[in-house]
């Protein structure tokens, strides 16, 4: 464990807590893409298949349970909670995410570390995570001004993967034979997708204005 990865995990945890806070406190999920939340639930379930077979550390196991539990709780809330579900922007959240699922799965069948169920699903979850934010970014674009909690959620989510890139650089420099090309390349793509959002987020923060994304 290094400081970059710890910072990344904590930032990721904050992004999930910000989202849970927004939904729980305001009993509203306006501006939040259910499709992105569902993709993230799939990312965590397919990535942590080794939850009960490989014990890395208590921290690792607890964090995996937190991420799986919170992502499923958010999806449940947005779909079935009688108050929250009414504020879901159903007509704006129309990204055809089957494409993302299909492409990621085909890519995982072709590019993986080992052709085993666990490794193929792990690669699938890495590829899917890189594009899982797209429905959310499209929804932010369509709903124009984002309320600041939705913007903060995306900001922390983008920052966490940027920290992980520093972590991979650090591990590559300090550990022999550290190779994680699938994660690195996918992480770079993921962070690049956030780049334009970061730019507009920074501008709005600097001008102390509400976030304006180009329509």
């Amino acid at each position: 464990m290094n400081i970059f990865r710890l910072a990344g995990d904590m930032t990721h945890l904050i992004s999930v807590l910000v989202l849970l806070l927004k939904i729980y406190a305001t009993k509203s999920c306006s501006g939040i893409s259910l499709k992105t939340q569902e993709l993230y639930a799939i990312v965590f379930v397919t990535r942590y298949l080794d939850l009960f077979t490989d014990f890395i550390s208590l921290y690792n196991t607890v964090m995996k349970l937190v991420f799986i539990g919170s992502s499923l709780a958010i999806v449940w809330c947005m779909r079935y909670h009688r108050v929250v579900r009414r504020s879901y922007d159903r007509e704006l959240d129309t990204f055809r995410y089957w494409i993302l699922l299909g492409v990621s799965f085909i890519l995982a069948l072709v590019l993986h570390e080992k052709f085993t169920l666990q490794e193929v699903f792990w690669a699938f979850s890495i590829y899917l995570e890189a594009v899982a934010i797209l429905p959310q970014l499209v929804l932010l674009q369509r709903s124009g001004n984002v309320d600041n909690l939705a913007g903060q959620y995306v900001f922390f989510l983008g920052a966490y993967r940027a920290f992980y890139i520093l972590n991979w650089i650090y591990r590559y420099l300090t550990e022999q034979r550290f190779t994680r090309w699938i994660s690195c390349v996918s992480g770079l793509v993921q962070t690049a997708l956030y780049a334009d959002f970061f730019y507009y987020y920074f501008i709005s923060w600097k001008n102390n204005a509400k976030l304006q994304l180009p329509a």
Partner: peptide, 10 residues
């Protein structure tokens, strides 16, 4: 087959 890196990251 290439060694699979231990999945010690989240």
């Amino acid at each position: 087959s290439p060694v699979t890196t231990p999945k010690d990251e989240l």
